[in-house]
Each structure stands twice: as C-alpha cells, then as structure tokens.
Amino acid sequence: MRDNIYFALFAVIAPFSLVAIGGAPSIFAPLQHETVDVHQWLTGREFVEMFAVAKFAPGPGAMVSTLIGYKVAGWLGAAVATLALFLPSSILCMAVSRVWDQHRGKPWHKAVEEGLAPVAAGLVFAGILAIFRMAEAGPLSWAVAVLVAAILTWRSKVHPFLLLGVGTVIFVAAALVRMI
C-alpha cells in the first residue's frame, strides 16, 4: 500500500504544473488548499513555514512542492513531488522550444525574436518590482540591487557569489548599525 501515497502525491501536484502561468506565485493559494484543507497532509502553519524555507534555500520558490513531498513520504516523496511539479510543464516547454528551434533562420523567426526581446525586458523589470514588493523591500534593497547592476556593467566577469556576498555584508552591517 506504500505505493499509493506516491501516486497520490503525483496526482495532486502534477496538475498544478500546467496551470502555473506566469510562474509559481500563481499556484501557491490552490496548492495550499489541496494539500492543507483537502488532503490534510500538513497544517496551514507548516505550509507557511515551507514557503519561508523555499525562499531561504536556493532554487525556485516552487520547491515548496519538494517539501510537501518530503513531509508526506520522506526523500522519495520529495523526489516524486518535485518531478510532479516540474516535469509536465518542462515536457511542454521542450516541445515548444523544439518547434521554435526548427524554424530558426526564417525571416519571421528573426522578427518574432526581435519583437519578443523588448517585451521580455519589460517583464524582467516588472519581476524586479514584484520581488521587492513581496519582500516589502526598503531603500537599502534598491541601493544594493543598483550597486550590483553597476558593478556588473563595469566588470561583467565578477563571480555572482561575490555579488551575493556584497549584498549580505551590506545588510548585516546595516542591521548591526541599527542595533547600536
């Protein structure tokens, strides 16, 4: 009967893979409803904690799914839940990318690529605003982001971990100054 829990995990989570349009934030509310209210695999408090963990740890925010799987059925459950969330959408994306690549070199392909680039730039800027809004970021966050972007413009070969370290040092220093 142990097999059933893995199947249940996959069956509950996989559909969310294909409805997450515009990224993971769009599925958090329904995912919480399914796993907390309907299946009672975890409490609401645990879900919120998992959300915080996924934000803290590296990787996409959708790794919440991995933790739900782990809570329900250990490491294997984590693997099943991760695949359930990322595999269906990835297969679809593989198909789309493949078709896209097959038409490379045609004039319309070049025009679509050319036309999508400024839209993407707008979406990237919008994403920055969304992240900062969600984190209720203050002027210090903006200052660090601009500083990092400026460093990259000036020295594009700087290792990203060094830049992440710069952000950490500035924030910890600011927190220490506030404490004094």
Binding site: V124, A135, V144, A145, V148, A149, L164, G167, V172, A175
Partner: peptide, 20 residues
Amino acid sequence: PSVVDGVAAAAVGLNLRLGV
C-alpha cells in the same frame, strides 16, 4: 533575516542588469 534580504537584493541586481 538580514543575510536573506541581502542575498535577495543582490540577486535582484543581476536581474536589473539583464533588464538594462
């Protein structure tokens, strides 16, 4: 919390560069 915010802000800086 400061470490997390600092890392996140720097990561956003990488995105800012991409947008630019």
